[in-house]
Structure formats: C-alpha cells, structure tokens
Simulated assay, not measured.
Amino acid sequence: MAKILLIEDDSETAEEIRDELFERGFDVEWAADGIEGLAKARSLQPDAMIVDRLLPGIDGLTVIETLRKEQVRTPVLVLSALGAVDDRVRGLRMGGDDYLTKPFAIVELVARMEALLRRPVESRETTLKVGELELDLIERTARRGDREIELLPREFRLLEYMMRRADQLLTRAMLLEEVWHYKFVPATNLVDVHMGRLRHKVDGPNETPMIHNVRGAGFILRASP
C-alpha cells in the first residue's frame, strides 16, 4: 500500500482527495498547512506527495524546495489555482514532478499519482559515477577524468537523468517528459539540439564516446572502456 502525504489547507478538497485515494487502496496522511506538512514529509517518508501551492505557514513551493535541498526525492504533484504557463513552469522548476490546476477531475488526480508512483525511484547519492564520468549533485559540477565539464542547468539535468539510467535506451519522448516536463510529444528537435551540445562537452576529441545516438530510437549513455 503506497503512502501518500496530502498537504492541503482546504478541508473539503482534502476530504474529497482522501476519500478517493482511500478507495483506490492508498494510505493517506493529511496536513493542513505548510509547517505541519514539512514536518510530516520528513518524519513519515511517504512514497509520494500532493502539495497545494498556496498554504498557510509555509507555501507549498517552499516546502518542496526545502525538501529537494535536503536531497528528498519523493515525487510531488503540485495543486494550484494558478494555471498560467509561468506558474506551472515555476512549480516544476522548484522541484515538483507534475502540476494540476484547480478545479480538477478527481480521476485525473488519481491517474497522475499512479503515473508518478510508476516512475523509477532515483537514488539519494550526492555523487553519480559512470565510468570516468562523475556528477556532483551538491556542488552541481561535472568531470570526466581530470577534465572539468561546464554545463548549463538543462544540460546538467539531462546528463543526471542519463547517468541514473546508464546503458538504457532513452527515447526522445522519455527525455521530453522527464527532463523538459512535456506531457505530450511536440514536433521539435529540442532533444537533438541539446544532446548534440552535451555530447560535444562530454566526449572530448581524443576520448572514447560515451553518449551514443541509436538511429530512429533514442540515446544511450555507456561507460567508456
């Protein structure tokens, strides 16, 4: 039984969500404000969280940002009455994994929670290593052997995602959803452009390639021999 932490100050909304999730077999713990929610997130270690953006005490985005800084990677669904694109983007950039605008259909909330829980659980290491490639998640630095690699924020996130799934084929659709948070697959070469820049930085002129393009399928990061 998955344990869900719901942080929502509106009691009617919270009751509706709790009842539906209980019926679906989830164990739901409720917190009515940001201070209580942050404390329960730390103590209960839930499998997933639903966090309202506007909360008394501490706002929802601050709760999420605080947990991410503490290396808590519990998947989070952000709820908000603010539906503008900039608001959704900010919620995702602060550490949310998905964003649902109020009012919403309760069946959609359940579906989104189930999707979050199906995602692979990311490890809590502070350093990732694949072959001679090393990523420091605290200092936000990257190295290949003795060579430092300067990465832009999106390149860092893209490389982190690939290193956590080394030797796995990653499709463009997967990368668009997980790195760019697209919920649909647009007709764009966005992934290819960023991947080209990342490959140029990771694979130096005299180094064995680590990032491989699988024609028509996607990309794979492999440890160099």
Rank of each mutant, 00 (worst) to 15 (best):
D27A: 11
D9S: 10
G37E: 01
L21W: 01
G91K: 05
R165E: 01
L79T: 02
R119H: 06
A31H: 03
S123L: 12
S43Q: 14
F156V: 05
P46V: 05
L44F: 12
I138S: 14
A166C: 14
W180N: 01
A115Y: 00
E65K: 15
M49G: 00
D192P: 02
M195A: 13
E207H: 06
L152T: 14
A111V: 11
E207L: 11
L221V: 04
L176I: 07
L158T: 08
R197H: 10
L116F: 02
A48I: 01
I64T: 11
D59Y: 04
L137P: 02
S80L: 13
R199M: 09
K129Y: 12
T127F: 13
F104V: 11
V202M: 03
F22Q: 14
L6A: 06
V72E: 09
L133V: 04
R154S: 07
L6T: 03
E20G: 03
R154A: 08
L116T: 06
I138G: 14
R68M: 14
H181Y: 07
E150W: 14
R172K: 12
T141G: 09
E70W: 11
E150K: 15
S123K: 09
I211V: 10
V130F: 06
G91S: 13
D19E: 09
R119W: 05
R199G: 05
P75A: 06
L77S: 03
A39E: 09
D87N: 12
R112H: 06
L135M: 10
L158D: 05
I7F: 05
L175F: 03
I149N: 04
L221T: 01
T208F: 06
W180R: 03
I35G: 05
G83D: 10
A31N: 02
T208V: 03
M174F: 06
P186V: 10
D146V: 12
V63S: 08
L158N: 04
R42E: 12
L152I: 10
A173N: 10
L135G: 02
E177I: 07
N213S: 11
L133E: 01
G34F: 11
R222L: 03
S123M: 13
E177L: 05
G91H: 05
A84P: 08
L109W: 04
D97Y: 02
H212I: 06
D52S: 13
E65M: 14
L198V: 02
